[in-house]
Design a protein around this nucleic acid. Structure first.
Lengths: 212, 212
DNA sequence: TCAAAAGTGTTGAAGATACACCCATGG
DNA sequence: CCATGGGTGTATCTTCAACACTTTTGA
C-alpha cells in the first residue's frame, strides 16, 4: 500500500497544412533534458484526472475547452528513471484556427507532424502511437473528426481532416454521401467566399456519439 | 507533486448457465463493510499495473492465466472515502470450466449475473457497466468471445457466449456463417458426443486481433 | 416418440466502392 | 486562360438480416 506518483500526459492533436500534428514540449530539466515530451504533469491531491489533464493543457499549451478523452494508463515500473510514476494518458483535439493562448512559450512548445516525431522522452512515443491509433479507429463510428475543425466548415475541410488522420486520399463523392446521409452535419445558409469557388458551410448537428 | 494511492480493480467475467456473471468479493473491512466489491488492491512499488491486476486475481479470485485487458482509470477525488485513491480498472475473462483455485474463499467471493448486481462499494457499479459495454463492443471486431470458452468448443457454445454478452438471441445460420467465413476458428476432426446430437468441435485459428 | 440441439441456403435490402465530368472563381 | 477546389449520379459488389425444415440422439 505504497503511494505512487501519478501524472497525466496529453497527446494534443491538430491539423496544420493538411497534416496531423502533435504538440510537444522541450524539456528543460532532467531527466531527458532538451528532449521533447508530451505536455503533462502531476495530478494534484484534490483534482480529478480529467481536471488535471485540462489544467496541464491550459498551463503548458495555453489551450482551453478542447475535446479531451482518456486514452490509457501506463505504469511500467521503469518508465521514469526518477522512480515509480504511473501516468494516465489523454488525447485532445483542437482546430487549427483555435489560437494557442499565452502560456505556450514558442521556444519550448512546438507542433510536429505525427509521422515525423523527434526522439521523445520516457515512453511518450508509444503514447502518441496509441493515441493516433485510437483516433483513426474512432473516426468511423464517432464524430471526433469535427473536433479538429472550427464551428463552421466546408465538406472539403472535413474531408481533409479525415484524410490527414487516416493518411490517405478518399473519394470525394463517397465521402460527401456518407457524411450527409448520416445527418451528423447540418448545412447552413452561409457560403465561404474565400477560396477558388464559393463553398457551402456546415455545422455539427448537435451532440452525437462520443462513445468510449 | 503529491503521491497518491493507486489500486487496480478487476471485472472478472464468466458465463454460467448461459448468463454473463461477474465475480464479486464481500468486503470484511470498512469502508463499505459487508458490501460487495470488485477484486483488486494496491499496486506495489515495483510491479507493473498489469502485473498487479494479475496478482490480485490470483490472490483474491484464485484465478491464473486469464485474458486480461486494461479498461479505464477512475480518479474522482471523492470516489474513496478514505482519501485520494486512483484506480486502474481491468477486465478479465475466464471459461466456466476453468476452476477457481484455492485462495477463493467461497464465503467471500461469489458470482453474480451482470444484470442483477447487488449494491456495490465505491464506484464499482460504474466500472462493471463500463467493462460490460467494452466487451459488447469488442465482440464484433475481436475474438474476446473465445476467451470465455475452453480450448475446444462447438459453434453452439460460441453462440451462447455471444448471446450472453449481447443479451439477446442470435440467428443460428447467420451466426455460423459469420464465424466460419471469418476463418477465426478452425474445425477439428473431433466431435462432442455428449448432448443430444454429436457436434463438431472447434479451436481458435491462432492469435488474431486483440486490439485496444 | 418426444425433446433438444445440430446442421444447412436463399432472397432482399442496405451499405460500400469505383469511377469522370462540368462549374465558379482568383490569379 | 488556367489552376484550384466545389459540386454531382450510377453501376456493382459486398455485407447483413430475415426466414424453416431435417437429422441425430438420449431420455
Amino acid at each position: 500500500m505504497s503511494r505512487l506518483l501519478v501524472t497525466v500526459d496529453i497527446v494534443l492533436f491538430t491539423i496544420r497544412e493538411r497534416v496531423l500534428h502533435v504538440l510537444l514540449i522541450r524539456r528543460l530539466a532532467r531527466p531527458f533534458e532538451n528532449r521533447y515530451a508530451l505536455p503533462g504533469g502531476f495530478v494534484l491531491e484534490d483534482e480529478s484526472l480529467e481536471a488535471a489533464a485540462a489544467r496541464e493543457l491550459r498551463e503548458e499549451a495555453g489551450v482551453e475547452k478542447v475535446y479531451l478523452e482518456q486514452l490509457y494508463s501506463f505504469g511500467d515500473p521503469k518508465r521514469d528513471p526518477r522512480g515509480r510514476v504511473v501516468t494516465v494518458a489523454y488525447y485532445a483535439l483542437v482546430s487549427e484556427t483555435q489560437p494557442l493562448r499565452a502560456g505556450s512559450d514558442a521556444s519550448v512548445a512546438a507542433w510536429f507532424p505525427v509521422a515525423q516525431l523527434p526522439t521523445l522522452a520516457f515512453d511518450h512515443r508509444k503514447i502518441v502511437e496509441c493515441a493516433h491509433q485510437r483516433i483513426r479507429n474512432k473516426l468511423d463510428y464517432t464524430n471526433v473528426g469535427f473536433e479538429l475543425l472550427p464551428e463552421m466548415f466546408t465538406l472539403g475541410d472535413l474531408q481533409l481532416v479525415h484524410e490527414a488522420i487516416v493518411g490517405q486520399a478518399l473519394d470525394k463523392r463517397n465521402f460527401r454521401r456518407k457524411i450527409t446521409q448520416k445527418a451528423i452535419v447540418k448545412p447552413l445558409k452561409e457560403w465561404r467566399k474565400t477560396g477558388r469557388k464559393p463553398a457551402q458551410l456546415f455545422r455539427f448537428s448537435d451532440e452525437v456519439g462520443h462513445i468510449h
